[in-house]
Amino acid sequence: MALGLLGDLYQRGWRDPTKIHLPSAELAILITDAKASLAKHLKISPNEIEVISDLNLGFHLGISGLLHSNSRLIHSAVDRQDIFAIARAHQNNGGEVQVCNCDLTGVIDYAAIKPSDKNVIVWQSCNRETGVKQSATRALENISTTGSKIFADMTFANFRSEPPVNWSTALWDATSWGGPKGIAFLAIRNGVNWVNPLPHIDMERVSNGFSIPLFLASVVALENSNKDFETDSLRILELNKRVRGFVAANIPDADIAGNIEDSDPRKLSISFLYIQAEELLRNLEKSGYLVDSGSACSAADLAPSHVLAAMGILTHGNIRLTFRADMTIAIVDQFLTALKTEIELARLD
């Protein structure tokens, strides 16, 4: 629906909402209404939201805006590379960095954090490679976060999940609920000591250079996802369980990342022993299936997925599956048959 509306949104959204003309004022009202709807769904205040057009920039603004030169930045071994880059920059500027490891199921050891009011903690809601979710209550209940600042990475979270109670900044990605790429939402909690780490020219917290039509489309996508959330979630869970069950019963030597109980069912990462991922991906594409991988041979830098490596999961022969509610059981079954055949053929070699 958001895609169908884009033409109309571009018709209405090209104007400058800060001008005094009536169409501009109408657009400004539309933006305000959209922000209110977004805030309601994400359970934050509308005045805490900043719309940005670059997700990577969102990590920098959200984390670096909380840091001081004497801060200790704490993040996990399974965080996105953007966060590692911010940590390296902080370290190069004399700051302290602590990396929390995770176990075989992907649960991050936040208990290793030493309480301090210098802490800036990066908390990951859900891993975009494996779908493994972190429980804020379980993760942070045993450590004192008094005085700490928390950046919540909500970029792959299901939009109904909430950041930890004492979050300072949080980042959402519109693609996580089916919105367009190029729109992210940075929330800066009211009262939090946050400073824009970039040079800026006016009183705006961050630059408002985002695409208004894409922003409006992302809010429409969120509202639509919310309508069908329960049925879609159940359907996706069923598909994920089906793949896990089939692989466990029919394809030996497979390493599945994370338990279904602690994972978002939209993602599934499986590694197959003795299999070259690149060859598997090419053969699956010939059969009509586009599949992603975290294996080294499919990455530009020839490095295996740091997420799988941190978990201790096999990094070669890896596939990452994404499930959508419009996928049928028949299509998933056809894919599984193709997957089994390709793996058996490859292992014969």
């Binding site: 022993l273 080294a296 020839l302 799988l308 201790g312």
Partner: peptide, 15 residues
């Protein structure tokens, strides 16, 4: 190969 130790450990666990 940079992935040897990670994959060897995973292989040992599985096998």
């Amino acid at each position: 190969d940079p992935a040897t130790w990670v994959d060897l450990s995973a292989w040992a666990r599985m096998s």
